[in-house]
Amino acid sequence: MNNFDYLRAGTIKEAVRGIATQPANQFIAGGTNLIDLWKYDLTHPARLIDLNGLDELKTITELPDGGLRLGALVSNNATAYHPIVEERYPLLSRTILAGATAQIRNSATNGGNLLQRTRCYYFYDVASPCNKRVPGSGCPAIEGQNRLHAILGESAQCIATHPSDMAVALAALEAVVQVTGPEGQRSIPIADFHRLPGNTPERDNTLAADELITSIDLPATGYAAHHSYLKLRDRNSYAFALVSVATGLELEDGKITRARIAVGGVAHKPWRKPAAEDALIDKEPSPEAFGAAADILLAGATGYGHNDFKIELARRAIIRNGAMALDPSCQRPGAQPSL
């Protein structure tokens, strides 16, 4: 709610330099989460560095290795409706369109999507304790209202989930996040971008405070033939996932040759386990096969009362989404269940 300075950055360099001058400075792109957080008195920027003048981050370009570079400042909607994304990465397109609303997707950017904060009720209530917001203050969710919360990878400090849909598809697609900081550029595989809460739940990801996401790079494999995103939530649209699943398959002669499954709404980051995917190799896609993969993927899941249902729901969602992936044309708006 505080007042802040405002700077519209002209170059990436200027933006990165600007962020370094004051720890409370923050980048702003779409603003759809930052302004929300600011109005709830959860963040107090000293200066907002507006990235919207950085035109070089607003393009989608094909990469020499057959992949695709999604500029960090391309809006979620522009990404989802981009012809190449629709054709080669329909899993990503559909996943993005299952998130938020058209209005928010028009403002929200690809970089910002990855950086959105959890939707834990207690995190959002400045008068409640929350280890993510005020380290050491406690986590009321563990014994409180935890319907939204994590069943995997959580810690005694925090059971929040990451709310992004897009990140779940990016995890399945094995995207790479390109960032620029004062020391130059580096690449962060999506699996390493978000982190588990551990003893430092205040940190959502591995991006340094003075680093800027410049793009998200997709590898060549897009699972255009066999993919599905299934999102289960408390209403059919405009709600965060209780459980979501992004599945990409490659098949030969009726057998799975390559599989990727990422689960959202269950952890502090999109949840993937290569062992679960390996278990599908050479199998015919069947409820049993996906059930076995789900068992590996969800091993060790713990409920906290209100979210106990997620363990079984996630398993069933993985199985259903496997079936849906075989026939992507069955996909419904909002990634609602079909078949």
């Binding site: 779409g30 302004i35 209005q103 403002s107």
Partner: peptide, 8 residues
């Protein structure tokens, strides 16, 4: 279409 409450 955008939400005018979430932009400055």
């Amino acid at each position: 279409r955008i939400l005018s409450c979430l932009t400055l």
